[in-house]
Nucleic acid binder design. Structure first.
Lengths: 219, 219
DNA sequence: TTTCAACTAAGGGTAAATACCTAGTACTTA
DNA sequence: TAAGTACTAGGTATTTACCCTTAGTTGAAA
């Protein structure tokens, strides 16, 4: 992108107002051009199929319906490795940061970041360099200094259809028994699903499950 | 505001990018002027102390640190009753909608709403009329047709300091026993707090508590 | 065609949460 | 000074969640 005139940006966020807002923000920034908008990971991926040659930076929200930002980043880097991803999230949870960076995002900043820092980050990412907001840096250092690395790294499989279904009902305050009735399953099966989900997500209990469900828009 | 030239808007949201984004959005809208920004309810309230005469509409996010949008709306309508509030949220949970409307907000729209609808809503609210996005309308009808009205209405007390503290730890995946150790309490006391919180929030179990905690930025 | 993942289900536990109840102390407010 | 609220904590019980393990079926992929 060294000799291009603009950094071409694709904004991915499920909230229209946020999307339009960031677009309006970036329009006034010199050297940046918003060339696309998508409301979820799937849409972004489909859009990139036709315009990936002209996209320099994807501004990627993490929590979205249809396809979340982490999955989308994975698919994008797999198929369009020349497109750089900057994760933009409200969450400063260590696991999201780690996850999306493992999928190939070059940077991570919070939505509570200022306009200046956003623009700076976009230019950095466009050059193929990394950029982390303060919170992301802290969490990263925290992660690197802990010994849990391997454990966490290998636990990034997505949930299965059935597991998503069960998780959604858990987050909706259903008990295992109620879930089993709703899904025509044995309570023991629901119990098994529940514990499998907990293991996959490194959740200690229901609280952890619900936090994941909300962050990933599962419902 | 009938003979003013502009609808003066105050934007309240905890995410700087969202705040700046909406501002950039509205700047291009004819007849609307963004005259203030605040990053939480407390800041908005303090700001209104000096400029409430010139504010027509407060665009109020629901989930914020320091002081959430529901509490802020309450304080604003109490002290500056001529200022109209339009709630702007990512959540379409019935309880938030009901809560903020009970505190005096005139409208409720989601962040997934489009720019056009946002601007339309702002003009409606500025005129003292109500405006609800589709999702809010649906939930409202749902609420009105249910018989739980009184039960829900009377259960809007805020939690106490201690209860917030306990709730935060619950959402952080601590068990009652761990919480009791952290706060130097008897496990029975934590249990009592937990059940009191559940009653106040109409939560059925831990899942309900965590959902509330996240939506209200308790941590 | 066998290997694997997803889905199903159960035995046999322990730990934790949920429910209903009472009750003391400390502090504030009417 | 009486009433109320927050905070504390216990008794007693049931229900639900959580843990470890095994295992059958199905369908898809290697």
């Amino acid at each position: 992108m060294s000799d291009k005139k603009y950094v071409n940006v694709l904004i991915v966020d499920d909230h229209l107002i946020v999307r339009d807002g960031i677009k309006a923000l970036l329009i006034k920034a010199e050297g940046i051009k918003v060339i696309g908008l998508a409301s979820n990971g799937m849409e972004a991926y489909e859009l990139l199929k036709s315009i990936h040659q002209s996209v320099d930076v994807v501004l990627m929200d993490i929590s979205m319906p249809e396809m979340d930002g982490i999955t989308a980043t994975h698919k994008i880097k797999k198929d369009f490795s020349d497109v750089n991803v900057l994760a933009l999230s409200m969450h400063d949870d260590q696991s999201y940061i780690i996850d999306v960076l493992q999928e190939g995002a070059l940077g991570y900043i919070l939505k509570s970041t200022g306009k200046k820092e956003l623009i700076h980050a976009i230019f950095r990412i466009a050059e193929g360099q990394s950029y982390f907001g303060k919170e992301a840096s802290d969490k990263l250092l925290n992660f690197l200094s802990s010994k849990e690395e391997k454990k966490e790294v290998k636990s990034n499989d997505l949930l299965t259809e059935r597991e998503y279904e069960v998780l959604a009902l858990i987050a909706d305050e259903y008990t295992n028994l109620q879930i089993s009735e709703k899904l025509f399953l044995s309570p023991r099966t629901v119990d098994t699903h529940r514990r499998n989900i907990m293991q996959k997500l490194n959740a200690k209990n229901t609280a952890g499950l619900v936090k994941y469900a909300i962050a990933h828009n599962i419902n």
